[in-house]
């Protein structure tokens, strides 16, 4: 029981320790707050700019979740198609990989040509950057249905659709939720990139303006807010994953 408690406490202790170490290093080495502000300075800035930060953070959160939802819907659909058809899978894979290889920063200008500056480019960037892992994972889950299982069902006269929906999709769920944890962080990166380059609000935009004005503590405060939001969204996805696909974590429950 003692080790269990230690495991629960460890993340908090290590995080706190990290910041304390940072604070001490800043004090001892007398680092200029222009180079690396101490955590206390950053927290001060967070408090000072709290209303501004909250406003922009909410906007970023909204952009991220919109782009992420699009990615989930599209990723599931495309993943199901790719997972059930070897032909389409083989045919479109190079395209998908090529598209995924393009750094999405480079796509933002095109989004601005198309949609102008506003909420569309951050949402689109978040979507474009985060759908790929979902597609790949859902497709993998569906395509790796045991051949014996497929034989059992096909011998009963099951259609391809039956097999995909009865076996493939439920089977792909652990892969799907695993990919969501990756996708949500990517979507977040995407929306911030979009805001930095093509928006007048959001943490990304705030970062751009703060760094242009050399407001170093505000830049760090914005980064801190980004990190906290990111952890929160990751944790939310992970808890949904655990509640929906508990059967996939069975080894822990049996042991």
């Amino acid at each position: 029981m003692k080790t269990r408690n230690q495991l629960v406490m460890a993340p908090f202790i290590f995080t706190l320790g990290f910041f304390i170490l940072w604070e001490i290093l800043c004090l001892v080495l007398n680092i200029s707050s222009f180079i690396l502000p101490a955590p206390s300075t950053i927290l001060q800035a967070v408090w000072e700019y709290r209303s501004q930060l909250t406003f922009h953070a909410m906007h970023t959160l909204w952009m991220t979740l919109s782009g992420f939802s699009l990615a989930v819907g599209f990723g599931l659909l495309l993943g199901m198609v790719l997972g059930s058809s070897r032909l389409i899978n083989a045919g479109t894979y190079p395209l998908l990989v090529g598209f995924n290889a393009i750094p999405k920063v480079a796509v933002v200008p095109i989004l601005v040509f198309w949609f102008g500056v506003g909420w569309v480019p951050p949402v689109m960037t978040a979507f474009l950057i985060s759908f790929f892992p979902i597609v790949v994972n859902v497709a993998t889950g569906i395509a790796t249905v045991e051949p014996e299982m497929e034989d059992v069902l096909r011998a009963l006269g099951a259609s391809k659709r039956d097999i995909v929906f009865k076996v493939g999709v439920p089977r792909a769920m652990p892969y799907f939720f695993g990919s969501l944890k990756v996708a949500i962080t990517l979507a977040y990166v995407g929306s911030v990139i979009g805001e930095q380059n093509a928006s007048n609000v959001g943490i990304g935009n705030l970062l751009t303006r703060a760094s242009a004005a050399f407001e170093v503590p505000l830049v760090w405060a914005a980064l801190l807010v980004l990190a906290v939001l990111g952890v929160a969204m990751y944790a939310l996805t992970a808890s949904v994953e655990h509640s929906v696909t508990g059967w996939a974590q069975r080894s822990q429950m049996v042991a």
Binding site: E148, D151, R154, A155, L156, R171
Partner: peptide
């Protein structure tokens, strides 16, 4: 000429669906 539908099958691997 098509899957016979009146057959049941079992294999060495029991292939149960874990969910």
């Amino acid at each position: 000429a098509a899957p016979v539908k009146l057959a049941g099958m079992a294999f060495q691997n029991p292939t149960m669906l874990p969910w």
